[in-house]
Design a protein around this nucleic acid. Sequence first.
DNA 1: CGGGTTTGACCCGCGC
DNA 2: GCGCGGGTCAAACCCG
Length: 211
Amino acid sequence: METYPPMFLSSSSSPPFMAMNMINSHHHHQATNKVVDDELAGGGFLGLMPSMEAQGALSSSNNTSSAEGASTGHNDFRDKGLAFEAGSEVGEPKAAGRRKGDHHQGYGKAASKGKVRKPRYAFQTRSHVDILDDGYRWRKYGQKAVKNNKFPRSYYRCTFQGCNVKKQVQRLTKDEGVVVTTYEGSHSHPIEKSTDNFEHILSQFQIYTSI
DNA sequence: CGGGTTTGACCCGCGC
DNA sequence: GCGCGGGTCAAACCCG
């Protein structure tokens, strides 16, 4: 059970994203694209990278690669994940009655004010389903069209009290089969779904650690 | 009904 | 200084 693929074995710690279940591969979908009956046609791990494009800025922070993040990833959420939360402290207007035309300030991002930037771990898989079931429950909070890409990018957030883990899913324009998932932060709570077939799923991944 | 999704507005950093 | 591009919010909407 402890047999993880080489990419996770940097320090035998928990990666920010553990236990991905692609059980609902050919499950129903929304309206983005028709889900073809490929189930595990993809399922191949194409790569793992520190971040998509912002890796330059991120690497200068404290982590240079995703492997490092995984190596210290057992409790590092206090460093990065919380840092982000602190940054968005102002931007948490649960009770603040801010409206579009009203006076409001501080949307999470700007509050950081050039401070700590949380690392993001991106990896891409081969699947026709955008949303991979990684065991956690996510709530979609945004979707934006990206320049140079035909497909929009979806923003998700973990729906756990106090858990500020985010992730964004995007498909590549060139290869529709490639789905890039970027994680931010680490979960601090147990997974809700069963992950006993984790190793079984990972065993069929193709890892490319030549980044 | 309640929780997740949709979707347009808004904010902000950055480049021109 | 302005416009663009990316990220977030929240009211409306949808669906079990």
